[in-house]
Nucleic acid binder design. Structure first.
Length: 464
RNA sequence: GGCGGAGUAGCCAAGUGGUAAGGCAAUGGUUUGCAAAACCGUCAUUCGCGGGUUCGAUUCCCGCCUCCGCCUCCA
């Protein structure tokens, strides 16, 4: 497949460096609260990337970290009166729960930052020894940006802009650590009173690792100095990924990631999500509003990953209808197979366009369009042809990670009184007592249940 | 100020130098006791604005307007 690369700003073919396994790293969540739907746009797209590669026959090694030590985790753990480990374990569990609901494949390796502190310290020692890092009087260690000429290559910043950033950043002046240049970033943070019990021993005294270094150390541990692809949200391009490159290349040599995959942020109601605007949604928020995780996944796939995607609650409703339509199409196609089953589909038949879209810079919205078009094309097929088309469609769905909803009624529990009411109405209807029948139907509607009459019976569905 | 992205029907959203995928909503029909659901059909002479190149531009170039993101620990 072809995918846009942030570094070279071109579409490039993805092929494993070692010819066998495509090894990639995704910056995972900082576990200090529930992930929001914007976070999940990134994780869902990374999941689709892997699924498309695997569906296309490329084996993957997927590494995604858990950031379980930083300012926010420490601050909020203490606020909650919990140990850092206990606090982050809770939010990590919540994250995994959400991931499973959204149909995300588990990464093959999911390292945590805290358990890799020795590796981080080792990297800092190397960087200091090579002259790329220096310690300050308070026991912090900084990376010297001026020692790495390629700094800024990924985000296309030149030195002038880095200097400019110095005067424009309020945070730079507010920094309480001592560094040679404002652009230098911290590798090791000296212990501070507000850190509480959360500090580790190092050659520079007590303290804790800097955020950027975590990823570099874990990548070095599991993927080495050269690997296929690195991914995250666009906001990580600078400074996080830029800093990772600097640390890793200066420590290990090598070229670090061969390809950079960045996902654009999700907008909500046309703007940035924020708590103050009341438009920051978590998966749980949406579930409480009656929407399913799969509906969210569908919405997130509805826009190209390099373009802003505008999320609205109404889009979830559209997703529900669309998923139901696909499910009906799949059922209709299944009925036409006449019992024929295709185990190993060759090619994608009517769904070739959908598959091609996925392989063309992960164009998920076009692929979704191709699903509907394919379904229409497949409508006239039967027997073996229908079976092949169905198998092809399922491959595309699997690549997208979409699990179709079952019958609307599956799993819905109908209360006894509602059931009785519906029975009474059905009898009235059979007796052609339209007045009573209609009245009971309204009564059911008032209690949130919709009746759909069929020839031999009726169907009850909860009104959404 | 710098870097990057976007403006396509009521909404969401693909796409292309050759005359606009798809979904939702809306709407007509079939069906239904009436509905709902389902099924079939309709739904942008037009792609932010103004120029230019071209036989032809929404797609390329120039200018402008508007919106959004990032600019040192935010996916």
């Amino acid at each position: 497949m072809r995918l846009y690369d942030t570094l070279t700003r071109t579409d490039r073919e993805l092929r494993p460096l070692d010819g066998a396994t495509f090894r990639f790293y995704c910056c995972g969540p900082t576990v200090y609260g529930p992930a929001h739907i914007g976070n999940f746009r990134t994780f869902v797209l990374q999941d689709v990337l892997r699924r498309v590669l695997e569906t296309g026959g490329t084996r993957c090694l997927h590494v995604r970290n858990i950031t379980d030590v930083d300012d926010k985790t420490i601050r909020d753990a203490q606020k909650a009166g919990q140990s850092l480990t206990g606090f982050t374990a809770g939010w990590t569990a919540k994250f995994h729960e959400d991931c499973e609901k959204l149909g995300l494949l588990e990464p093959h390796i999911e390292p945590g930052a805290v358990e890799h502190i020795p590796q981080q310290i080792a990297m800092i020692e190397t960087l200091v020894a090579k002259g790329h890092a220096y310690s300050s009087d308070d026991g912090s260690v900084y990376f010297r940006i001026s020692s790495f000429p390629d700094y800024g290559k990924l985000s296309h910043l030149d030195q002038r802009e880095l200097e400019l950033g110095k005067t424009q950043s309020a945070r730079a002046s507010a920094d309480e650590y001592e560094k040679d240049s404002v652009s230098d970033f911290v590798l090791w943070k000296a212990r501070r009173p507000e850190d509480g019990d959360n500090f580790w021993q190092s050659p520079w005294g007590e303290g804790r690792p800097g955020w950027h270094l975590e990823c570099s150390a874990m990548i070095r541990e599991y993927l080495g100095e050269n690997f296929d692809l690195h991914s995250g949200g666009v906001d990580l391009v600078f400074p996080h990924h830029e800093n990772e490159i600097a640390q890793s290349v200066c420590t290990c040599g090598g070229h670090f990631a061969a390809h950079w995959f960045h996902i654009t942020h999700l907008l909500v109601d046309g703007g940035k999500m924020s708590k103050s605007l009341g438009n920051l949604y978590t998966l749980t928020d949406l579930e409480q509003r009656g929407f399913t995780p799969m509906e969210l996944r569908y919405v997130l796939l509805g826009g190209h990953y390099r373009k802003p995607l505008n999320f609205t609650l109404d889009s979830l409703h559209a997703a529900r209808e669309a998923l139901a339509k696909i499910a009906r199409g799949a059922r209709a196609l299944a009925e036409k197979t006449g019992g024929e089953v295709t185990l190993d589909a060759v090619g994608f038949g009517p769904f070739q366009a959908a598959w091609d879209s996925l392989n063309d810079d992960l164009n998920t919205p076009a692929a979704l369009g191709g699903l509907f078009t394919g379904l229409r094309k497949a409508a006239g097929l039967s027997g073996k042809d229908a079976a092949a088309a169905l198998a092809a469609m399922n491959r595309v769905l699997r690549a997208l990670g979409i699990v179709l909803p079952d019958d609307a009624n599956a799993g819905v529990k109908i209360p006894d009184d509602i059931h009785d009411l519906a029975e009474t109405r059905w009898q009235a209807r059979l007796a052609k007592n339209w007045v009573q029948s209609d009245q009971l139907r309204e009564q059911l509607a008032a209690q949130g249940w919709q009746v759909k009459d069929g020839k031999d019976g009726y169907e009850l569905t909860p009104a959404r």
